[in-house]
Structure formats: structure tokens, C-alpha cells
């Protein structure tokens, strides 16, 4: 296999149809978690708690969806947490209490665009100025955090004069139609966003070039694809999802909290990784990311119900992240 070695060397990674297997493993893991927690605690298996889990997954899940695209392209985005916060603050500035006083839909629109714009700047710095993604988005993470605090004057912005705003997340359109089914809108926003993301990844040019760039960037360039522009688009898309996350968290908290956001990016990246997306690029799935996000929130929720202190919840989550990736590595090694 002398020659095969050269290929895998030139592509830099072993590539097999491993994504499906990892997803299956992750999904199995999620089921096992549900069974264990249900057995250990009656409080876990209530409808209200399930709702709570889904609500807790929503924001992290949407951030994870966006960063999935970036990670598939072989990059990373550390700024999504604070860009989310920045977007929330912008929504507040446009439509919040005692601010500009524009209608809420305008606030939501500008909030989304703020995220997309920050992402586009990330992408431009990375693809045109050749700054490594880790550094570029680390910088943006700090910039967005600083700007959030400056713009909000270090105080939360509330949406008390806009009672409808909170319903974006917490209201229930389904409950209004089908009495008794008080499923919060957050669930539908999450799954809707996931469907859109899955469509983009599988069916559109952007999705195709995302995988191609992550798989072999130079070859993609030599094939005549304008890699710089598409990379910018990928980071902008990720930013757009962060913007959506910002709108969602502002709605859920009924306020824009400018100090929030640091650490959200790592939870999102953890969800993506648990879902089987390779940090070296070229492979990953939306379904995997959603499962990964649910694993993290289920774990947090279940451990809290079992009265495990928050500090220990973090320890467990960290162990799970390492285990998930380690299992993937073992499996690849066996496939050789």
C-alpha cells in the first residue's frame, strides 16, 4: 500500500464513510442518556422537563448549526458566542425599552444582519488577509464582546414594552391551534433552522463548496472555484445563525444581556464534534450536530435534576466530548 499512503498523506486525513456511524453512536448515546435519567428520576420524564430540555437546546443548537458549516470547511469560529450577544444588543438598541423605538420586526432583521455582517468580516479577514481562522475569530470574539458592552452601556436592555417579543421563543403557536399542546415556538425555530441548514448543505452550491474546501482547498481552487468568496459566504452564514441565536436568547430572556455569551461558542463546537463532524474538515452532518446539541442539554438537565452540582456537570460534559472523539478515532483506526 505504499502508494495509498501517499494519497492519504496528501489529503492529510483518513476519509471513510464514518459520519453515519458516528451519528448512530451519538444517537444511541442520547437514547441511553434518556433511559438512564428516566429510570433515576421521575421528574426527568415529565412533559414539562422535556420542554425544558428542548428550550435549553434551542440557542446552543442554532449556534452549532452555523459553526457546523465553518468546521466542515476546515475552519473554526470562536466568535459566535459574543456575536450572538452583539446581535441581541443590537435588537435592543433598535427596538428595546427607552431606545430608538423602531418596530420589533425591524429589530429582529437588523439583529440577524449584525450576525451575518460580523461573520462576513471574519470570512474576509480569513480568506483575503490569510489570517488563520482561530486568530481571526478570537479577535472578533473580543471585538464583539467589547462592542456589546459599549453599545449597551454595560446594562441589560429590556423589552418590557414589547410583550409580543418574548412570544417569539416562549409562546406556542401550536398550543393556540391545538389546545393542550403547549410546545414553545423555540422548538420549531430550532428544527426549522436545522432543516434549512440541512438543505443548504446537501442541495446547494454553497454546501457543495463547503465540503470541497474542507476536503482539499487547493484542489478546489485549481478547479476554478472562487474559494475566497465562498469562504466569506460560509463565515457569513455562520454569523447569520449566530444572529438568529441572538434574537432567540433576547426573546427568551426578554432582555439583551451584554455580559453574556463567552463560553457559548465552546458548547456549540462541542455539540458539533459530538455529532461526528471532523475538525479537520470535509465531513459532517446537520443531524449529527442536532443530536450533539441534545446530548449536551440532556446531560446538563439530567444531572441538575439528580442534584449534581453545576461544577461537576461541566466535568462530565468535558469527559463526554473527549470520549466521543476518542471513540471516533478508535473506529477509524480499526477501519485502517
Amino acid at each position: 500500500m505504499a502508494v495509498m499512503d501517499t494519497t492519504s498523506a496528501s489529503t492529510g486525513k483518513a476519509v471513510r464513510s464514518s459520519g453515519a456511524m458516528q451519528k448512530l453512536l451519538a444517537f444511541g448515546g442520547l437514547i441511553v442518556l434518556f433511559i438512564i435519567f428516566s429510570l433515576l428520576s421521575p421528574a426527568f420524564r415529565t412533559f414539562e422537563n422535556m420542554q425544558g430540555i428542548v428550550l435549553a437546546t434551542a440557542v446552543n443548537g442554532v449556534l452549532a448549526l452555523g459553526v457546523t458549516f465553518v468546521i466542515i470547511s476546515g475552519g473554526i469560529d470562536l466568535s459566535i458566542g459574543t456575536v450572538m450577544t452583539l446581535s441581541a444588543v443590537v435588537v435592543g438598541l433598535v427596538a428595546g425599552d427607552d431606545k430608538a423605538g423602531f418596530p420589533i420586526y425591524l429589530g429582529v432583521l437588523v439583529g440577524l444582519l449584525t450576525g451575518g455582517f460580523a461573520g462576513a468580516i471574519n470570512g474576509t479577514i480569513i480568506s483575503r488577509m490569510n489570517v488563520p481562522p482561530f486568530i481571526a475569530t478570537l479577535g472578533m470574539m473580543m471585538i464583539a464582546r467589547g462592542l456589546s458592552l459599549v453599545l449597551a452601556e454595560v446594562k441589560p436592555i429590556y423589552f418590557n414594552n414589547l410583550p409580543g417579543f418574548r412570544d417569539i421563543m416562549m409562546g406556542s403557536v401550536l398550543g393556540a391551534v391545538v389546545p393542550g399542546m403547549q410546545v414553545p415556538n423555540a422548538v420549531f425555530i430550532l428544527f426549522g433552522a436545522a432543516l434549512v441548514a440541512a438543505f443548504i448543505l446537501a442541495k446547494t452550491v454553497l454546501g457543495r463548496y463547503d465540503v470541497a474546501i474542507g476536503s482539499n482547498e487547493e484542489a478546489t481552487r485549481l478547479s476554478g472555484v472562487n474559494v475566497a468568496s465562498w469562504k466569506t459566504a460560509i463565515y457569513a452564514l455562520c454569523g447569520l445563525f449566530a444572529g438568529l441565536g441572538g434574537v432567540m436568547i433576547a426573546s427568551r430572556l426578554n432582555s439583551a444581556q451584554p455580559a453574556l455569551g463567552v463560553g457559548y461558542e465552546l458548547d456549540a463546537i462541542a455539540a458539533v464534534v459530538i455529532g461526528g463532524t471532523s475538525l479537520s474538515g470535509g465531513e459532517g452532518t446537520i443531524l449529527g450536530t442536532i443530536i450533539g446539541a441534545f446530548i449536551i442539554s440532556t446531560l446538563t438537565n439530567g444531572l441538575r435534576i439528580l442534584n449534581v452540582p453545576q461544577e461537576w456537570q461541566m466535568v462530565v460534559t468535558g469527559v463526554i466530548v473527549i470520549l466521543a472523539v476518542y471513540m471516533d478515532i478508535i473506529r477509524r483506526r480499526r477501519q485502517g
Partner: peptide, 11 residues
């Protein structure tokens, strides 16, 4: 056709 093959292995 370059010496280093230019295919995207994941596609």
C-alpha cells in the same frame, strides 16, 4: 493533471 492528485476525497 498535477503530480499531487487534485481530488476532493470527501466528494
Amino acid at each position: 493533471i498535477h503530480q499531487e492528485l487534485n481530488l476532493m476525497p470527501h466528494l
